[in-house]
Computed example of a mutant assay.
Amino acid sequence: MIYAFDTYYYDGFAKTICIAFKNWDSENEEAIYSENTAITSEYESGAFYKRELPCILSLLKKIDLKESDIIIVDGYVTLDNDGKIGLGGYLYNALDNKIPVIGIAKNGFAAEDSKRREVFRGESKTPLFVTSQGIDVDEIKIAVENMSGSYRIPTLLKKLDQLTREK
Rank of each mutant, 00 (worst) to 15 (best):
I2D: 10
F5C: 07
Y9K: 00
Y9Q: 03
D11S: 15
A14D: 09
T16M: 10
I19E: 02
I19N: 00
I19C: 02
A20W: 07
N23L: 08
W24T: 13
E27R: 15
E29I: 06
A31N: 14
S34M: 08
A38Y: 09
E42T: 11
E42G: 13
E44K: 05
G46E: 02
Y49W: 11
R51Y: 01
E52I: 04
L53F: 04
I56W: 10
L57A: 09
K61A: 09
L65S: 12
S68I: 11
I71F: 03
I72T: 05
V73H: 01
D74C: 00
D74N: 12
Y76I: 03
V77Y: 11
L79H: 01
N81A: 10
G86V: 05
L87R: 10
G89W: 10
N93W: 08
L95N: 04
D96W: 11
N97W: 09
K98L: 01
I99T: 07
I99D: 01
V101W: 07
A105C: 03
K106N: 07
N107L: 11
A111M: 14
K115E: 13
K115S: 14
E123D: 14
K125V: 07
F129W: 08
F129M: 06
V130S: 02
V130E: 02
G134S: 13
V137Y: 04
E139M: 15
I140D: 04
I140P: 00
K141D: 13
V144N: 00
E145V: 07
E145I: 05
G149F: 02
G149Y: 02
R152Y: 06
L157T: 01
L160S: 04
L160Q: 02
Q162I: 09
T164H: 04
